[in-house]
Amino acid sequence: MEPAVLETENLVKVYGRGANRFDALKGLTLEIRRGESVAVIGKSGSGKSTLMHLMALLDRPSQGVVALNGRPVSELKNKEIHKLRNESFGFVFQQFFLNPNQTVLENVVLPLKIAGVAKRERNRRGMEALERLEMADKAKNKATDLSGGQKQRACIARALVTSPSVIFADEPTGNLDSNTSEVVEEILFGLQREQGITLVIVTHDDDLAAKCDRRIYLKDGEIVQAEEIHADSAGAPAQGTTGGEREDTSTGAHVAPAPQYPATEPWAAPADSDGPKHREEGTR
């Protein structure tokens, strides 16, 4: 069992106040282990993006803890958080967010430019990332000249260029047709397999979710069901993650107190912390 890269405990996010108060997240506890791919699934407005933003340190929770490599981020200074986002995280957005006035290469090396890497070095690494995505021939093109799939590949190259340990993707295939989606999915999972990059993918797409190692279902800001399917082994028990999930790193054991809920009735899930304890051996 790999150690947890990201953990959250009792994560609460409240927008607005008074009559406008809206509880976007209502106490989420989960963990994401190094090298796994996790899909965050749920209806529109269920809080998926909010959760992702909190885990990616783009926003601060109203309550609760986000921990990175076992260390609560509230202990970190702003400067360290900026550095972490820059070096350890990669982002792939549904709307691409490519700068239309710049070339593909310039877009891809933006994180390196922010990190203060010298021009020659960042162009070298940018070309490397583009080559890996078979986009090297488009390096000098304006970002606007690309097709949707190419744009998303450019975005992935940008997410990759700093060699991050976690890539966050918010609906990475939302704007793509099914063929192109498959190509992009292939690339993302390839990165996970070959480089051990942790993937956190927010999606509506059940096919994409099914390809992930694990799925977290959100409904109205709560985790209603989570299951774990191992790509390489069959029949490992699925496991809930609601409430006080803990990992014993010395043994690699994963302790989850929450019961498993039927996938067919996610809305029926009670937030029951007295459920039977479930011990699972590391299988990865």
Binding site: K83, R85, N86, F91, F97, L110, I114, A115
Partner: peptide, 16 residues
């Protein structure tokens, strides 16, 4: 606005 948001999410500090 979006470009600023992108740069910030990629770790550019407010000072920069």
């Amino acid at each position: 606005t979006r470009e600023i948001g992108l740069m910030k999410s990629l770790g550019m500090s407010p000072g920069k």
